[in-house]
Design a protein around this nucleic acid. Structure first.
Length: 493
RNA sequence: GGUGCUGUGGCCGAGUGGCUAGGCAGAGGUCUGCAAAACCUCCUACAGCAGUUCGAAUCUGCUCAGCACCUCCA
């Protein structure tokens, strides 16, 4: 490995060297979606960011267990209705039909963007027993109490042995000063206490019979249960969107620590928001884009559609912890950049090192290329800086193109450097960043036949035919490249 | 109101005390039947003001602008 992996830990607010608890194993937990409606692009960004984190950890040789949950109960609206129940009522469907529908949709979207599946994808309803057991344990530990059929977590007691609010940098006193008036407050000892188990109102569909009441689990409980169940009482990385930091993740820590007396995750990573005109993309603001709208271009802010890989490329050109502003112009620029990269991948894959004992080694070029390769590791090691990594890949790409067009001799950099350049370029693009050639792009044998025709026309100096073929191909998104070394093609940028 | 974050060249976006990514757009050049592609070169910025420093876009302070989160049923 080149250098050490450092991650920005939002728990300590420091960039720290990443050291797994039980190397080579790494436990990674990410809060997944609540499956009550279509995922939008902001959601996609978060899961894509953790996809790259997952990929890079594996690339470094870690044996990663990646757990990402599906929330299928307990995530409520301001009105107190369960998001899934509400949708089920509206569409006259079973809650589980809603869950299935949007889980399927979620999986489709993930696959579209080449986001790998997690190793375990547990659901909240599938872990009710474990949730009940955790509540019992918390009650036994004196950190939870029953009130009117519901069970609440006792923040005041918890705070005697730990610090509630440390992840999000909040102080209990401040929180108390700005409590909102919400339904159900009367049952609680302290307004900051949160529900572990909630007694269901008569009209509530999703409900389970327990010793406390006919009810349902609190939203924060599932993640505490499922992360520790599959990754252990202590594990390596916990991630999620920044908007979950408070209160969701704060409550998770409280529950896990309250149950096991151990800090659950050693490193907390939070992804930043996707913005539109500087504002957070969110359903409630009505400024969210659905993946399919972006792909088809069916949106008033878009002049055209963009392919999934273009979107992936666009998102990875920023760092996961920065906000990323979404615009038509930025996407067009990203599209050109992506095609350039995709062309480079196609070229390098076909390229084989040709021995030439006559050639003299160009030490300067060789050194540069070696440095660019090292830089890819340094960039990813620096808190998964995909934007910087892409920059270095473009530097490598220049060398690849120069060799391809005969402007730089392959032999001049030597076999070793050539092979390293090739494998670094391909693996960082494909394995680490998950950038690949778009399935929908043209290519293959037919194209070769046409190009042969082109070449023959060219040799015969039949320039009318040459121009005709060239413009016909261009109309199909293919640009012909006449080089000293031969004829090739590229995706039009 | 509390807490935190951000402000980078025409645009997007990294970086974060001296070596000053990358992409897109623009200019010039090489190559070419003409082009395109590709390569080379150029355009060298860090909201404003003050301070610390030999040196700041990077640290400190203030100002301005913008954003995010603010529970327990988000």
């Amino acid at each position: 490995m080149i250098g050490k992996l450092k991650v920005n830990n939002t728990l300590t607010k420091k960039k720290e060297v990443f050291e797994p608890l039980n190397p080579p194993h790494v436990g990674l937990y990410v809060c997944g979606p609540t499956v009550y409606s279509d995922v939008h692009l902001g959601n996609v960004r978060t899961f894509m960011s953790f996809d790259v984190i997952y990929r890079y950890l594996k690339f470094l040789g870690y044996k990663v267990r990646y757990v990402r949950n599906i929330t299928d109960v307990g995530h409520l609206l301001d009105s107190g209705e369960d998001r899934i129940s509400k949708k089920a009522t509206l569409e006259s469907l079973e809650p589980m039909e809603i869950v299935q529908k949007y889980t399927n949709d979620f999986h489709d979207v993930m696959a579209t963007f080449n986001i790998l599946c997690p190793d375990i994808e547990p659901t909240a309803t599938g872990h009710l027993m474990e949730q009940l057991a955790m509540i019992d344990q918390l009650v036994d530990n004196g950190l939870a109490y029953e009130s009117n059929g519901s069970v609440y977590f006792d923040i005041e007691k918890y705070n005697k042995e730990n610090t509630y609010g440390k992840l999000s940098g909040r102080k209990i006193e401040d929180l108390l000063n700005q409590t909102r008036e919400l339904d159900g407050q009367d049952d609680k000892k302290n307004p900051l206490d949160f529900a572990l188990w909630k007694k269901a109102a008569p009209e509530h569909i999703m409900r389970w019979k327990t010793k406390w009441s006919d009810g349902f689990p609190g939203w924060h409980l599932e993640c505490a249960v499922m992360s520790t169940k599959y990754l252990g009482k202590e594990f390596d990385i916990h991630g999620g969107g920044m908007d979950l930091q408070f209160p969701h993740h704060e409550c998770e820590i409280a529950q896990s620590y309250g149950t096991y007396k151990k800090e659950p995750a050693r490193y907390w990573l939070h992804t930043n928001m996707l913005t539109v005109n500087g504002q957070k993309m969110s359903k409630s603001l009505g400024n969210s884009f659905l993946p399919k709208q972006l792909i088809s271009g069916d949106h008033e802010l878009l002049s055209q559609g963009f392919s999934p890989m273009t979107i992936r490329f666009f998102m990875l050109q920023s760092h996961y912890a920065s906000t990323l502003d979404f615009s038509n112009e930025a996407l067009i620029a990203a599209q050109k950049g992506y095609f350039k990269m995709a062309n480079g991948m196609r070229i390098i894959k076909k390229m084989e090192f040709a021995e030439n004992t006559e050639a003299t080694i160009d030490e300067k070029q060789k050194e540069q290329i070696e440095k660019f390769c090292d830089n890819c590791y340094y960039a990813m090691n620096d808190d998964f800086n995909t934007a910087l990594t892409i920059g270095h890949l473009f530097n490598i790409l220049k060398k690849i193109n120069a060799i391809h067009t005969g402007q730089l001799s392959m032999a001049a950099i030597g076999k070793e450097t050539f092979e390293r350049m090739k494998s670094t370029f391909i693996s960082f693009n494909e394995e680490v960043l998950g950038i690949k050639a778009e399935d929908s792009l043209p290519g293959g044998q037919l194209l070769d036949i046409i190009l042969k025709e082109y070449q023959q026309a060219k040799e015969a100096r039949n320039y009318d035919k040459v121009d005709e073929l060239r413009s016909a191909l261009k109309a199909g998104g293919i640009v012909v490249k006449d080089m000293k070394t031969g004829i090739d093609w590229a995706y039009e940028e």
